[in-house]
Simulated assay, not measured.
Amino acid sequence: MATPISADRLVTALRAEGVRVVERSGWRSHNRNHKGPFGPVNGVMIHHTVTSGTSNTVGIVERGYAGLPGPLCHGMIAKDGTVHLIGHGRTNHAGRGDGDVLRAVIAERALPPANEANTDGNTHFYGFECENRGDGTDPWPKAQLDAIERAATALCRAHGWSAASVIGHKEWQPGKVDPKGFTMGWLRDRVSARLKSKPSGGGGSAGGSGGGSSTYVVRSGDTLSSIGKKLGVRWELLAQANKIKAPFVIKPGQKITVPRKVSGGSYSPPPFPDGLAPGRSSPSAKGLQKALKDTGWLDRSVPLSDNYGPQTQRAVAGFNRKHNLFTTGRPNDPAIGRSGWKLLHQLAYGK
């Protein structure tokens, strides 16, 4: 269970995993949030579109159709492996499905058969629609299957989920058959294998530099520092990679090459702070809150504070529950333990 990641972090996660991304105009604010909540999120759902032609398919998932307004997904994965970002927030992709399946996803255990439609899936799942007629004969090109695997892995990695958090529409809602043409067991095996290694990178934005970097287009109000914070890269590295010298001025529309982060060896989390506990005041609570924000468990609007208060406790409880970390043996343990502290920081900063 987690707070949905920001649009910027979604783009960064996909590109870090080697996904070629196209950001459709207005996708960051294109959603159905006025119809219900998006989050807490628990997993990733894969669909096929029952359409053909990338341009046609993008138009359909953006607009929707009679009785089902768009956006119909967060990203549309085309035959050539490009992920077109369509919406951010609540989208019309999952519909109502089986609450028992949701509980299995949260617990990351084997899925029961979907035989009820009693739970709103649009609240709980990211959705990727994949360009395919869904007739069992339309092929799934290698580039497309690779992109599906990488996109699902990117979100699992961003949230610290295992491959058990990736499901198909047919596993969620009775009567659905998508995705048709490959099995979800096969996909989960691929995601699981990919999660055992570091992100392979190599995917830039469309028209970007590709290879070992991606491209960011400067928007009004951006600075190198703010871009670095969004993308998880030191601003000094951005300046160096783009030969930007003091006073380090950038302009809207300017294309910034974003170098991939290079690991300097195994990551060592900061020492576990003594005295950090729910309800207590400690300067270390700020470090905990920042790591929770950077892994999507705590909303970024929550101000950093010395107080290990209710919002921090709820975020820690969700993190513990997802990773079976219970320092006190309680099912909703709000206390961060040494193993949880280490895992949280590795997920936030160790990649």
Rank of each mutant, 00 (worst) to 15 (best):
N56Q: 11
D98W: 04
K196P: 00
S55G: 01
S220T: 15
V262L: 13
I256S: 13
K251W: 09
G185N: 11
E17I: 05
Q173P: 03
P310E: 14
M76S: 12
R280N: 14
G185L: 11
S200W: 08
L102R: 11
S226R: 05
L288C: 08
R234T: 03
A78R: 04
S52I: 07
N242W: 09
K293F: 07
I5Q: 10
G203Y: 01
T57M: 09
H47Q: 01
H323Q: 07
D120S: 02
Q173F: 11
A206F: 14
V191S: 06
A7K: 04
K229L: 10
G279P: 03
G160I: 02
S52F: 12
S205Y: 07
S6R: 08
E129F: 06
L85M: 12
L145F: 14
P141R: 00
N307M: 06
D138H: 13
A154W: 02
H48E: 14
N242F: 03
V50I: 07
T91P: 00
G287M: 02
V177P: 02
A2M: 11
A117I: 06
L276H: 01
V44K: 02
W161L: 01
D178Q: 14
W235G: 00
Q289W: 12
V50F: 07
A158S: 08
K293L: 06
P310W: 00
C73K: 10
R321Q: 14
I60H: 11
E23I: 03
R188K: 07
R330Q: 12
V218L: 02
G279T: 12
P141D: 01
K286Y: 07
G204P: 06
A193F: 10
E236H: 05
A2E: 10
G89C: 13
T3D: 10
V302E: 10
N132Y: 01
V61N: 03
L72I: 10
A277W: 13
E129V: 02
V41W: 00
F248E: 05
Y349V: 08
Y126R: 01
G265V: 08
P278F: 09
A2Q: 13
I148A: 03
S281N: 07
R219M: 07
V61E: 04
V50N: 13
R219S: 14
R314K: 15
P247T: 12
P334A: 14
N115V: 14
L237C: 05
K290N: 09
V166L: 03
H74G: 09
T215D: 10
G210Y: 06
A277G: 03
P310C: 02
P310M: 07
S339T: 15
S52N: 08
R9E: 08
K245W: 07
L195V: 04
G89D: 14
K261I: 12
G87I: 11
C130M: 06
A291S: 12
G208F: 00
E149P: 01
A13I: 03
T12N: 12
I5T: 13
K255I: 03
H74E: 09
T153A: 13
R15D: 02
I46A: 04
K351R: 15
G36K: 02
W140L: 05
